[in-house]
């Protein structure tokens, strides 16, 4: 393939005591694709996310992101490099407005310090205006601009998921990692989410997707990797993954057989 890889995970391992949460997991995500990561509960999907975004230090292996080794020691460094994420259990800043939540996402791409904040010099004022403008754009983008001034915790479940995506996009990511974004959504909401994710990819952001909704993953992703008991058992295009007997046995069961 001529497409450049954006993320290469090489033999990633993560152990919790005797539990092999991740063992020898290697995968390659190409730039501009939607990559699905599936597997039964406890297979290590979220652990992989946490290693990728710097919340966990891996016990082995390395991550190559955009050509350079990802020093996955601190989450804010991962964000600076261009990896943004959402959380399986939504983690918004509940007592901040939707607008402010997205504005926090701009933190990593802005510079104003204490002095700028206090003196309100021209640079800071301009930067602040740009933050606000970008946050407004993103709220429009995920279609919750009318809730801008509401507290995040008062948004509906679906809107909270969208807000989390907007906040993640505010960090100007190269790779957007979504941890079960469709969880708890009904069919119509999932459909809208799908359009949103496709739109994000079209705008040049690579998407890594953990999802239980098999239909969504198979319909949306260019490549899918399957984790089971912390190990990758399969990685291919959806059509192949769907037919892989190991996958059917481990995860899909009789569902698609």
């Amino acid at each position: 393939m001529s497409i450049r890889p954006l993320l290469e995970a090489r033999a990633i391992a993560k152990y919790f005591g005797g539990v092999k949460a991740l063992h020898d997991v290697s995968l390659t995500i190409a730039e501009g694709e939607i990559y699905g990561l599936i597997g039964p509960n406890g297979a290590g999907k979220t652990t992989f996310f946490n290693v990728l975004t710097g919340l966990y230090r891996p016990d082995g292996g390395e991550l190559i992101f955009a050509g350079d080794k990802l020093q996955a020691s601190a989450p804010h460094k991962a964000a600076r490099r261009g990896i943004a994420r959402t959380f399986q259990n939504i983690r918004l800043f509940g007592n901040m407005s939707a607008m402010e939540n997205v504005m926090v996402g701009r933190h990593v791409r802005t510079r104003a310090g204490v002095l700028g904040a206090v003196l309100h010099n021209r640079k800071t004022v301009a930067e602040e205006a740009a933050i606000r403008r970008r946050a407004e754009e993103l709220l429009h983008y995920v279609d919750i601009a009318d809730r801008a001034d509401d507290l995040a915790k008062h948004l509906s479940y679906g809107d909270q998921r969208r807000l989390e995506i907007a906040r993640a996009l505010a960090t100007d990511p190269k790779l957007l990692a979504l941890d079960e974004p469709a969880a708890g959504m009904n069919g119509a909401e999932t459909g809208e989410l799908r359009l949103l994710i496709e739109g994000i990819r079209k705008d040049g952001v690579t998407v890594l997707l953990i999802e239980h909704d098999v239909k969504l993953v198979m319909g949306l992703c260019d490549h899918v990797a399957v984790l089971d008991y912390g190990q990758k058992i399969c990685e291919d295009v959806p059509a192949v993954v769907q037919k892989d007997p190991r996958v059917i046995e481990a995860y899909l069961g009789g569902e698609l057989a």
Partner: peptide, 15 residues
Amino acid sequence: VAIREDEIAAKACGI
């Protein structure tokens, strides 16, 4: 305020 509200999410936002 972001740290007060959710420290992990704040880190993930690059703080």
